[in-house]
Nucleic acid binder design. Structure first.
Lengths: 114, 114
DNA sequence: GTACGATAGGTCGAAGTTCGACATGTCGAT
DNA sequence: ATCGACATGTCGAACTTCGACCTATCGTAC
């Protein structure tokens, strides 16, 4: 799609955000935890990056706020859940494919130990 | 290594630069072409990004200038060849491994079509 | 023969992105 | 009641990327 090309390449935070959201709706803080866990603590998302990235992703139409998913915890404070839009899913797929090219290439050249 | 962790996560340009150099010594313009080709034209490295990234990579000790590789073309103008340092190779490997985690994850979730 | 596009290197300022300190408030445990 | 984890957010500084511009060489086409 042409829309997709408009948002590529994704910035690092945008990529990490979409990656975390691809597993289902999550709130900001949960995204932060997920990204840090998956990167082995290398990528640290401070609040500055986290919330400005969420805002940017919403502006680009990559995510939107979900209607309060978890049924049990209606009470639970001021959490805001986000989920991928169709464009978000497409952009993520395109970016992963692109990155995959580099990663495959590098893995092959790096002794092919995987 | 601790040195490696110091430079992680790599910025996009830094990653692309090291990725292109991992195949052997190259000069700036050749790096630019390689990155653009491997990304299917999505990543465009203008001169601003290209040369400031090379400078940054040298400062970080990730690359260093190579002693004029190609034997045939001694004459060929003012080309500057760069190659990865040991640290550069380690940082690249670490970053590719980290990114690979995300990519594998995303590929599996994205229908596992690969 | 000279004009053009590709190769090759580079600077600069503006725009975009990331960082971390601070602010605010809730919740559960010691 | 105080502390750390949870949760959201702002702000300014630092870092990164972008694209316009500059210089110069080379080969091809007009």
């Amino acid at each position: 799609m042409d829309e997709v090309r408009r948002v590529l390449p994704l910035s690092r935070s945008l990529l990490h955000l979409l990656l975390a959201l691809q597993e289902g709706a999550r709130h900001g803080y949960a995204v932060k935890k997920r990204v840090e866990a998956l990167s082995g603590g290398v990528v640290k998302m401070g609040p500055g990056t986290l919330y400005t990235t969420i805002q940017r992703a919403e502006e680009l139409g990559l995510i939107h706020e979900a209607p309060e998913r978890p049924p049990q915890e209606e009470d639970q404070s001021q959490r805001r859940y986000y989920e991928l839009t169709e464009l978000g899913r497409e952009a993520l797929a395109a970016e992963v494919e692109r990155l995959g090219t580099f990663v495959d290439h590098a893995r092959a050249a790096l002794g092919g130990l995987a």
